[in-house]
Simulated scan of single mutants.
Amino acid sequence: MTAAPGSVGPDDAARFPDGDVLVLRALGLGDALTGIAPLRGVRRAWPRRRIVLAAPAGVGGWLRSLGVVDAVLPTAAVDSLDGVRLDPAGLRPGHVAVNLHGRGPQSHRVLAETGPARLVAFANADAGHDGPPWRAGEHEVARWCRLVSWAGGPCDAADLRLPTPGGPRTAVVLHPGAASPARRWPVRRWSALARRLVEAGHRVLLTGSAAEAGLCTQVIAGAASAGATSGASMDPPGADAPAVSSLAGRLDLPGLADVVGRARLLVCGDTGVAHLATALGTPSVLLFGPVSPAAWGPAVDPHLHTVLWHGDGAGDPHAHAVDPALEAIGTDEAWDAVERALAAVAA
């Protein structure tokens, strides 16, 4: 895989006279959002340099539109960097490389191959690189802020916040999907939660990717079936829109951010949308399973976010069946947390 960020124009040369900083974070949405705070530290460390982010084009372009970075070197979202090469052709000589992707050695070598004047990364003997030590179990935001602060760019978790869309918060957003089955709460429980929200008078929106549209349809069908059994209507008389509707596959990233930013409450698993709620200050109820919230939970505003978890952090986040710790979260427990969160929003 090769890509280039484009040639440097006269405007870039004038705005960033000291050259470029190439930052690697070729990961998914949640990883990108937890990377916002250290990226702001990178800006502080090198204010006269252009910040070029090697990341998936969609999330990279969105961060560029927000002014977090200045240019994007598009990559796929990958865990393994085998065969990945970053083309340095669009970078000015003497660039600084910052590894926000991993501990190395692969990610160190991918950046080293671009010929940087300096590599900022955690210490890794296999890559022959000296730097601050990697700490197992450290919160993802704190870890990368520590690295960038060490390099001269002070930053902390408060830097991950993004501007909110403004206006009234209306619907409750449910995001039932996740990258792996291990982190997907059972469909029937999402349906039961949606039904209870409607019966309590709330408008419910489901979000997800195009691949998760079928999952959202199942949630709506299950909620409607349960409502019919109980005699409750899923579409109250006089409503301008159905009480539960799906936006799965219909939103780009800015659109998703707008929906989450205007939500009264987000309920989801341990997935990227949870970090979007954290960045936008949207109250949330988060259902964790195989991964500890100490490493990936909300890093700011604990009063806004309720985390449910019955695990020990030893689960497999990539397993092909729901994690026992996630399955241990029952519908009643989730509903109690949702009721408390909604009451706090209304207070």
Rank of each mutant, 00 (worst) to 15 (best):
A3V: 11
P10N: 11
A13T: 03
F16A: 02
G30Y: 02
L39T: 06
V42H: 02
A45M: 09
A45R: 14
W46E: 11
R48Y: 01
A55S: 13
P56C: 08
W62M: 05
A77Y: 06
D79K: 12
D79A: 14
L81S: 01
V84G: 08
R85K: 13
L86A: 02
G90D: 14
P93M: 05
N99S: 13
G104C: 10
P105W: 15
S107W: 07
S107G: 06
E113W: 02
P116H: 14
R118W: 04
V120D: 06
V120C: 08
W144D: 04
C145A: 07
G153W: 09
C155M: 02
D159Q: 06
V173M: 00
G177P: 10
R189E: 04
G208W: 09
A210T: 08
T217I: 01
Q218D: 15
G222W: 09
G231H: 00
A232M: 09
M234A: 13
G238S: 05
A239F: 12
D240W: 08
A241W: 14
A243P: 03
D252A: 14
G255I: 01
V260H: 04
G261I: 07
A274H: 03
T278E: 13
A279V: 10
G281F: 10
V285Y: 05
G289V: 14
P298I: 14
L304A: 10
H305W: 08
H310F: 07
G315S: 09
D316K: 03
I329V: 13
D332F: 00
A334V: 00
V338P: 04
R340C: 02
A343Y: 11
